[in-house]
Amino acid sequence: MSEWKSRRFWTRAEVARAKGGHTIELDGRPVRTPLKSALIVPTRAMAEAIAAEWDAQEEVIAPLSMPVTRSANSAIDKVAPQRAAVADMLADYGDADLLCYRAAAPAELVAQQAAAWDPLLDWADSELGARLGPRTGVMHEPQDPAALRKLRAEVHALDDFALTALHDLVSLSGSLVIGIAAMRDAQDIKTLWEISRLDENWQISIWGEDEEAAQAAAHKAEAFLHAKRFFDLGRVAT
């Protein structure tokens, strides 16, 4: 027996005004999330991106080709019901941020980490008022509580859609500072991704690259770039 698949049943996807933002209608019927909530997004730009994904579907619906739709569903169905817990989980990255854990050797790697990561720690200090200090090795050393409070407040101030984007920016990079820097356009998003991959790229330069690992890294990079796009779509004026 062949696996059942959802098939296209609509002719046209359109954006419509809704209470609290914008929604997407398929032949006049509003789209709902997997948990049957109203799919209402904060900006027209995000709604138009979602409508374009639905319009691009052919005979069989391919969910993996609809990243903005999936992120919006996550914001509504997963993040909104537990936003405080999600915000706390992301804020906790600040106390073990990737950018703070440095190698003791070799000297070339130490220098590369300092050159790439110190400017972002300086940026967090100057722009967010949060000075995080580097440590040598992998053993956890707590950061300044005052700095962590500043970062926590930054995260908790985000709406559900921005928090959804930050979740992927942080979890994929391993760095709260990189995630916030991406949202604030502190550096080019592709540069920030490469900064987060510094240790992995160092290992590749020594041992070579495994094909399976390279494919996994490419998927993560795509997801990281999408998270930034999703954040930006939620900030475009309606």
Results as ranks from 00 to 15, higher is better:
A115L: 10
D125V: 10
G129A: 09
A124Y: 09
I204Q: 03
Q112T: 07
D199H: 02
D95I: 05
Y101C: 15
D125C: 07
G174C: 04
L192R: 06
M183T: 09
V155C: 11
I195P: 00
Q112N: 10
W117A: 03
S171I: 06
W123R: 13
V138A: 12
Q113F: 02
Q143F: 12
G94I: 05
D185F: 03
S173E: 10
R197N: 00
E141Q: 15
I195Q: 00
D95P: 04
I189S: 09
K190E: 15
D97I: 15
D168L: 08
R102P: 07
I204L: 05
E209C: 05
L198V: 08
N201D: 10
A111G: 07
A115V: 02
L151N: 11
I178A: 13
P119Y: 06
D144H: 15
D122G: 12
E209Q: 11
Q187K: 04
L198Y: 12
L99A: 01
I204Y: 07
D97C: 08
I180M: 13
D199L: 03
Q203S: 10
A130P: 08
L132A: 09
V155M: 11
S205L: 04
G174L: 11
R184N: 03
E194M: 06
A157K: 14
A153E: 15
E154Y: 15
V110I: 00
A103M: 04
A96C: 13
A147K: 06
S126I: 12
L169E: 05
A181I: 01
T164I: 00
G174H: 06
Y101Q: 11
T136A: 14
I180G: 11
T164S: 02
Q203Y: 09
H140Y: 13
A116Q: 07
R102I: 08
A96T: 04
A146L: 07
S205N: 10
L158W: 11
I204C: 04
D168K: 06
S196Q: 00
G137A: 13
R197F: 02
T191I: 09
P134I: 13
S171C: 08
L132P: 12
D185M: 10
L109M: 15
D125K: 14
A114E: 13
Y101L: 04
E211F: 05
R152L: 07
Q112P: 03
R152Q: 04
T191P: 15
L120P: 00
E194H: 09
L151A: 11
A96E: 15
H140F: 14
L166E: 05
W202I: 03
A96K: 12
A104Y: 12
D159E: 00
A153C: 05
H167Q: 09
F161W: 13
